[in-house]
Design a protein around this nucleic acid. Structure first.
Lengths: 150, 150
DNA sequence: GACCTGAGTTCCGTAAGGGAACCCCAATGG
DNA sequence: CCATTGGGGTTCCCTTACGGAACTCAGGTC
């Protein structure tokens, strides 16, 4: 894990990385999103060490990304996305779009999205929340906001 | 950094993490995007160790995210985004949206985006590339694609 | 020729990940 | 009613990677 603390930086990227920037955290989020929700399943699917998996799960629960809840009268637990965590999946969806385009190669994308609204296999596209036009890195200027440091 | 190799996984998230999943890499990308492009500037801005900065820059150059190019007849170099790297910034923009909403607190967002197309301060929104309707985690089904493993 | 500056490299101490073994608890089951 | 099973973690040791400071190198400048 990063030794330098990203939490204090006046940057929403750094602060987001403080939540899911550690190795494995995004993949844990992916698995929980995809329905792999129990400790043993996660450990087997990811091949992560049990120690680190415990740490990451606790961290994600503390930050309100996932909830830990019992699913049996025996001490058995599963992890489910909170609203906060579900919205964080947006980041993963965009990563998938980029990875599909630049890294998937001839085999094609490993996973497809079927959009409920239109029923088609599709991908995400970034648009301006105000005018609806495409909004990518080259389409904007960065301006200091109210929460900027001195 | 991660000891387990994400590169071989049949998952575009894992493969993207193999490129920018190491600690600091996303922040380096952010800085280069924002115009902080030289070694000394990056080191000072991030507070990263010089050794790790060197490793990360080399890694990003190898993966085609940034280019290293001389800006002087002396051995001086700057780093600039490639097209591949510029598209990867989409991921950062979505992270900013999430961080602004869930982590910024009362101070408000540290940075604002002014959209060239409409001139307004805005944020990104995820839409279906086919039908244009909103597309978030709950709006899709995941289906194995052609590049899925056995 | 001495000095400066940007861009790294080297070295050491510490902290984090990997892996295997171990532990705890509730529900069977013989 | 004691032994077993199986999920969900802990504990331990080993190795690797980060942080930080010192050092190097090459071209320009005074």
């Amino acid at each position: 894990m990063q030794r330098t603390d990203f939490h204090e930086m006046a940057c929403s990227i750094a602060r987001t990385l403080d939540v899911v920037g550690e190795p494995w955290s995004p993949l844990i989020l992916r698995d929980v999103w995809a329905g792999i929700s129990r400790f043993e399943q996660l450990q087997a699917d990811l091949g992560i060490s049990r120690k680190v998996l415990t740490e990451r799960l606790n961290h994600l629960v503390e930050r309100g990304i996932i909830d830990r809840r019992p699913y049996d009268r025996r001490p058995r637990y599963e992890y489910v996305l909170t609203d906060k965590g579900t919205e964080l999946v947006d980041v993963l969806m965009v990563m998938v779009g980029w990875g599909d385009k630049w890294l998937a190669g001839a085999a094609g994308p490993p996973v497809l999205y079927r959009h409920h609204a239109c029923g088609q296999f599709s991908n995400v596209d970034l648009r301006c929340a105000r005018c609806g036009e495409p909004m990518h890195a080259r389409d904007i200027d960065l301006v200091p906001g109210p929460g900027a440091g001195a």
